[in-house]
Nucleic acid binder design. Structure first.
Lengths: 214, 214
DNA sequence: TTACCAGTTTTTGAATTCAAAAAGGTTCCA
DNA sequence: TGGAACCTTTTTGAATTCAAAAACTGGTAA
């Protein structure tokens, strides 16, 4: 197995999989399940630690990182900057095909909203944000976004929403698609910022992060 | 030696030290010079590869990354977004002490400009930008900035400047300090963007990056 | 009981070892 | 001479080994 593949699989286990934040990372088990020795696994652990997904405790193993309130604040601040930048860059660069794709996702998302299917809603939501970043056509930006997104994924795409917030989010997404279609870079950046700032408030209110852990 | 220390030393060798972009990374020599075995060195290599400073060629060793024109474009675009965000966040957060520090650096930088001492000028310049990022008080942002900055350092802080550009850069820095002192977040973000966009043009004109390598 | 300690086991971090791949060198032949 | 085939050496990636640190265990004494 390739080094990058180990990193990807480990990242997946940490962000979508069975190891919850704060939990010990079972080195032996993972070695067995990936069918590799400790050397390549530990290399992957160091990489993910440098991304902030893993915490290395000297001589005491590694744990899945747990977000503090400060982390959430910082991650959302940077995510806001990155998504706004992505929006601005995407406006002049996005192809009609990409626009169509996003419009399609948007329609599906509205369907899920009507059905009050939060999980499917979030899945479309996430794909839309990722599509905008992709349309910005900047690999460095995409890499940073992916790294941030991985860290706040649980907070961002699991937090429940009040009916009012949910309706508002839908409205904002109409605005996002609209700004994209009009190629209104400034407008799009502004809506994206507002959209994320609201989401952040919601996550903080939901008390997703721990105030006291590191 | 600690893992993070190995990463830091290797990063230093790659960004300020003797291994130029595109050059082979001499694993054996570095192991000897750091007095460690290959295992921890290779862990550090993987981490720096994930940051983009090192390129791993399967079965053919690793090389110091070389910037393509596309890389330069992408890195500057993201750097712009990050510095603008840092400026916006710094305005309400910066302490008087930090402001004084930057004013001090600015004065020294002007001195170096008067003496046409490019190297010392760049050193102050870099410290000012780093101080603004620090004043934003966001560790995630600072980490990303450091990672981007490491990659474009050679381009950004080595490229020679025409007398006109240099004078303009000085002017812009007056504007930056001024906006900070007025706590004018929007204004500061705008100047920082302009400032970096101009620098990017200069770097591209100087033909720093290779068009054909990866 | 409960706090503490010695001895054992497990885990961790890093050096070493090992097999496979690549690079380098030599010989042989057209 | 040029180059193709073969063998040797070096380098690479990853498993294994090893020493040190931490965690666990059972026993002892207050």
């Amino acid at each position: 197995m390739m080094h990058d593949e180990v990193v990807a699989r480990l990242r997946h286990v940490l962000t979508e999989g069975e190891i919850p934040p704060g939990a010990r990372i079972p080195e032996r088990e993972l070695c067995a399940s990936f069918a590799i020795s400790r050397t390549p696994l530990r290399e992957a652990l160091k990489v993910l630690a440098s991304e902030g997904l893993v915490v290395l405790l000297p001589n005491r193993g590694s744990r899945a990182a747990k977000l503090t309130q400060k982390d959430v604040k910082e991650l959302f601040e940077v995510c806001e900057a990155l998504e706004a930048a992505a929006g601005e860059l995407a406006c002049p660069r996005i192809t009609d095909e990409q626009l169509g794709e996003i419009a399609e996702l948007q329609a599906r998302m509205v369907e899920h909203y009507r059905a009050r299917d939060l999980l499917s809603y979030y899945r479309c939501n996430r794909l839309i944000h990722e599509a905008i970043v992709r349309a910005a056509d900047n690999a460095v930006l995409a890499g940073f976004y992916e790294s941030i997104a991985a860290r706040i994924r649980r907070a961002r795409f699991i937090t429940p929403m009040t009916p009012e917030h949910w309706a508002l989010a839908i409205q904002e997404h109409e605005g996002i698609l609209n700004a994209l279609q009009r190629r209104d870079a400034g407008g799009l950046a502004h809506i994206l910022r507002t959209h994320l700032r609201r989401k952040r408030e919601e996550v903080v209110l939901a008390g997703f992060a721990d105030a006291n852990d590191r």
